[in-house]
Amino acid sequence: MPSPRSLKILVVDDQQSMRGLARQCLARLGVQEVALAATGEAALDMMAETRFDIVISDLNMPGLSGVDLARRIKEHPVFARIPVFLATSDAYREQAEDETVDHFVAKPFSVADMRGALEAHLGPLE
């Protein structure tokens, strides 16, 4: 069982309120290390400096979309094994279907949905 305390998660969303909400949900699950990026490009820069266990990215962002970011991560020799969760409402999920996306997280974020996404990929949390 993975401990949420041991996870380093990068949240990428162009909306500050959504980044904050994601951080709050993850904190309530016990995740202590959450980094925030406003763009896909900023996320890639942060990933060059820090190793993350999971990337949670919004689908619709200016510049690199969430799918574009997922593809860049999966094509990179160092980042390729990092799970990428795509955050989107059900209305946009079909356009986000892509083999590079490891899991989907419902937006707006909730603790229950975030737990479900993490457990679907990692197994039961402590």
Score class of each variant (00 low, 15 high):
residue 112 A to Q: 14
residue 104 F to I: 08
residue 19 R to Y: 08
residue 10 L to T: 11
residue 43 A to S: 07
residue 79 F to L: 15
residue 15 Q to K: 15
residue 100 T to D: 07
residue 12 V to E: 00
residue 29 L to H: 09
residue 77 P to G: 09
residue 54 I to T: 11
residue 15 Q to V: 14
residue 126 E to I: 04
residue 48 A to K: 11
residue 96 A to V: 03
residue 109 F to I: 05
residue 110 S to Q: 06
residue 94 E to H: 15
residue 97 E to K: 14
residue 84 V to T: 13
residue 69 L to K: 00
residue 124 P to C: 01
residue 108 P to A: 03
residue 66 G to K: 04
residue 105 V to L: 15
residue 93 R to Y: 04
residue 118 L to Q: 12
residue 70 A to Y: 00
residue 105 V to D: 03
residue 94 E to G: 01
residue 67 V to I: 15
residue 99 E to M: 13
residue 83 P to G: 09
residue 47 M to L: 13
residue 7 L to R: 06
residue 32 Q to D: 10
residue 97 E to H: 09
residue 22 A to R: 09
residue 11 V to L: 02
residue 108 P to Y: 04
residue 6 S to F: 01
residue 25 C to I: 03
residue 99 E to S: 11
residue 50 T to D: 09
residue 59 L to C: 06
residue 64 L to G: 09
residue 75 E to K: 06
residue 109 F to Q: 02
residue 86 L to Y: 09
residue 46 M to E: 02
residue 44 L to C: 02
residue 33 E to M: 10
residue 126 E to W: 06
residue 49 E to Q: 14
residue 99 E to Y: 05
residue 119 E to R: 10
residue 58 D to I: 06
residue 26 L to D: 01
residue 102 D to W: 03
residue 46 M to R: 15
residue 45 D to S: 15
residue 71 R to S: 05
residue 50 T to E: 12
residue 121 H to C: 06
residue 43 A to F: 02
residue 31 V to R: 03
residue 19 R to C: 13
residue 16 Q to E: 12
residue 34 V to Y: 05
residue 34 V to L: 14
residue 55 V to H: 07
residue 115 R to S: 06
residue 98 D to N: 05
residue 36 L to R: 13
residue 62 P to F: 00
residue 21 L to V: 01
residue 11 V to D: 08
residue 72 R to H: 12
residue 42 A to D: 13
residue 47 M to P: 11
residue 117 A to I: 09
residue 6 S to C: 02
residue 26 L to S: 02
residue 79 F to K: 07
residue 64 L to Y: 03
residue 38 A to K: 08
residue 2 P to W: 05
residue 91 A to K: 08
residue 123 G to D: 10
residue 57 S to D: 07
residue 108 P to T: 02
residue 93 R to S: 02
residue 54 I to A: 08
residue 95 Q to M: 15
residue 4 P to E: 01
residue 85 F to A: 11
residue 82 I to F: 00
residue 117 A to T: 12
residue 55 V to I: 06
residue 42 A to L: 12
residue 121 H to D: 10
residue 61 M to E: 08
residue 102 D to T: 13
residue 64 L to S: 01
residue 74 K to D: 02
residue 122 L to P: 08
residue 9 I to A: 06
residue 29 L to M: 11
residue 9 I to D: 11
residue 35 A to E: 13
residue 61 M to V: 07
residue 12 V to K: 01
residue 90 D to H: 07
residue 49 E to A: 14
residue 64 L to E: 00
residue 99 E to K: 07
residue 53 D to I: 05
residue 70 A to G: 13
residue 16 Q to P: 03
residue 96 A to S: 09
residue 100 T to E: 10
residue 103 H to F: 11
residue 30 G to P: 08
residue 13 D to Q: 04
residue 100 T to F: 09
residue 39 T to F: 04
residue 123 G to P: 11
residue 13 D to T: 03
residue 112 A to K: 13
residue 34 V to G: 04
residue 11 V to H: 09
residue 53 D to C: 06
residue 17 S to C: 05
residue 75 E to A: 15
residue 12 V to Y: 03
residue 5 R to Q: 15
